[in-house]
Amino acid sequence: MHVALLGAGMMGQTHAHAYKTMPKVKVAWVFDKDAKRAQRLAAMLDARPTTRLDDVLEDGNVQAVDICLPTDLHRTFTEKAAAAGKHVFCEKPIALTVEDAEAMVEACEKANVTLMVGHVVRFFADYQAARRLVESGAIGEPKVIRAARTGAFPKWGSDNWFADESRSGGPIVDLAIHDIDWIRWTFGDVVRVYAKRTDRYALVTLRLASGAICHVEASWAHPDGTPFTTKLEIAGTKGLYTTDNQSIIPLAIRRTVDGQHVYQPENPQPRDPYALELEHFFDCLEKGTQPLTHGREAAKTLAICLAANESAKTGQVVTLGGASS
């Protein structure tokens, strides 16, 4: 299976490391508008670098593209790849509007190619364990759920694109979307949304069709150097589950490097979740099955995030799907 990696930024590099552990997939091209960045990552993957998308689209050996570009480019690149008959793995969020997301889904359907969106939290072992616990019934019916994803502002985006809401969608569409997607997947549909936010911080309350109440915190407002923190709490009719990625540190290494104290906490996933999601994608291509986080699924999650933005903007509650609990 030959894939072209589109984008050699932070996510492109993360995926490149995943591909290094996937012998069945060959990265044939690394595309980036920055030739040097493309070359650097291509060298690591033994791939060809290019700044011309057509090189990728015209290569008949390439079956799929992996889009790791800023969100505002997702629709155009997906449509071009689909038109060229390439399957599409696209980083989250799928797009910035439901209209764009629908267009991407339709373009892929029309071209008869698969579209999967990188909602990678579904592939994290700790979140999978939480979902298994819920399914086991050990804590009863899940009723009050709290999720948080907080850290410093992502400065790594080229041209600081995360800071440009017209490109990233802001903290709900780019960051809270992880937890909102996992919540939807694990606990079901959202019927009502209320949210408050700034350009770097958001608090979102969701009411689910099941009656459950969820709270999602997303922060890019923490000081530089703050460790990226995730928290999850599920209160059920029979019990409570709490977990987070900061207090659970199975290995911590402290060293002195050049006179400076270096603290290195380690909480390794059993397997790189990015590799797991990409393997799932290629597995689906081989078997002709629908990926777990296919385009329509991602569009549904996006719609909730956009409803949260709408609520934050208007100060009103937004009801989804005409239903109310």
Binding site: E141, K143, V144, Y194, A195, G211, I213, H215, A235, G236
Partner: peptide
């Protein structure tokens, strides 16, 4: 959001204020 979801009681047992 205010509700009785966690316990079998005749009064609200959970909520989320913004």
């Amino acid at each position: 959001e205010v509700d009785t979801l966690l316990h079998d009681v005749g009064i609200d047992d959970c909520g989320m204020l913004t």
